Simulated scan of single mutants.
Amino acid sequence: MSPRKSVAEAAATRDRIIERAFTLASAEGLEGLTIGRLATDLGMSKAGVIGHFGTKEALQLAVLEAAVDRFRQRVPGRAVGARPGTERLSRALHEWIDYMTESEGHGGCFLTSVASEFDGRPGPVRDAVLDALSRWTAYVTGELSTAVEAGRLPPLTDVDQLAFELNGVILAADQSIQLHRDPQAPDRARRAIGRLLKR
């Protein structure tokens, strides 16, 4: 076996582990991931699974990184062509709601679930979640500031407060979709977003 093929196969195996771990963590929580369960599901040894990451925490961080990449491509990534400001932000928020309701999103938002799971647990996983959500908040405030500068929102708009309220709508939508199984939740969230961005 050539070294190049060996490296490629190792990377493919690592990706397969992360994919399965993401699916399991979406249903059972990131902390609930066990090396034994992954090894059984993938037909590997425990040593073979952990050997790609070193520790369970490193595996959790790899899964979280994959989740952030999916989110970035699926939510702000699909809003790239929209006009900067409220139009682009509205599209991104609507994409996030759609993502929550699709099978691809596993019936809710992975990042929101992990944030709730680790918000009181200091450590690298919590830090990584905080960093990802802080970048999202910066995206939201950036688009809101652009809208204020362009005159699409009132000049005295409190951008930080509006970002807080919009993120509150998303959190409420996630809980209503995932916990309450409320079929009206996506439409309620979209109406709330529209009202907030048109004031």
Rank of each mutant, 00 (worst) to 15 (best):
E117F: 04
E117V: 10
E117P: 10
E117W: 00
E117Y: 04
E117M: 06
E117Q: 08
F118E: 01
F118P: 01
F118N: 01
F118D: 00
D119A: 13
D119L: 14
D119W: 14
G120D: 11
G120E: 11
G120I: 00
G120L: 08
G120W: 01
G120F: 01
R121F: 05
R121V: 14
R121G: 00
R121A: 14
P122I: 07
P122T: 10
G123A: 07
G123L: 09
G123C: 07
G123H: 09
P124S: 14
P124F: 04
P124I: 00
P124V: 02
V125K: 13
V125D: 00
V125C: 07
V125S: 08
R126D: 00
R126H: 13
R126T: 02
R126Y: 12
R126E: 02
D127P: 07
D127E: 14
D127W: 08
A128F: 02
A128C: 03
A128M: 06
A128E: 03
V129K: 02
V129Q: 05
V129T: 09
L130V: 10
L130Y: 09
L130R: 08
D131C: 05
D131Q: 12
D131Y: 01
A132R: 03
A132K: 02
A132V: 01
A132T: 04
A132C: 00
L133S: 02
L133G: 00
L133K: 03
L133E: 10
L133N: 01
L133H: 03
L133V: 08
L133W: 01
L133C: 00
L133Q: 12
S134D: 14
S134T: 13
S134G: 09
S134M: 10
S134V: 04
R135V: 02
R135L: 09
R135T: 05
R135M: 05
R135W: 04
W136S: 06
W136T: 09
W136L: 13
W136V: 12
W136H: 10
T137V: 09
T137A: 15
T137R: 15
T137M: 11
T137E: 02
T137Y: 05
T137C: 12
T137K: 15
A138N: 08
A138M: 09
A138T: 10
A138W: 01
A138D: 15
A138I: 05
A138F: 01
A138V: 07
Y139L: 10
Y139P: 01
Y139C: 05
Y139D: 07
V140Y: 04
V140P: 12
V140M: 03
T141Q: 15
T141R: 14
T141F: 09
T141K: 10
T141M: 13
T141S: 12
T141C: 11
T141H: 07
T141Y: 11
T141W: 11
G142E: 05
G142H: 05
G142F: 06
G142T: 11
G142W: 07
G142V: 10
E143D: 14
E143P: 01
E143C: 10
L144Y: 11
L144T: 12
L144R: 03
L144D: 15
L144M: 11
S145C: 12
S145K: 08
T146M: 12
T146V: 13
A147S: 12
A147R: 06
A147D: 07
V148H: 02
V148S: 11
V148P: 03
V148I: 06
E149R: 15
E149Q: 15
E149T: 13
E149D: 14
E149G: 12
E149F: 07
A150N: 09
A150C: 04
G151Q: 06
G151E: 12
G151F: 03
G151L: 03
G151D: 11
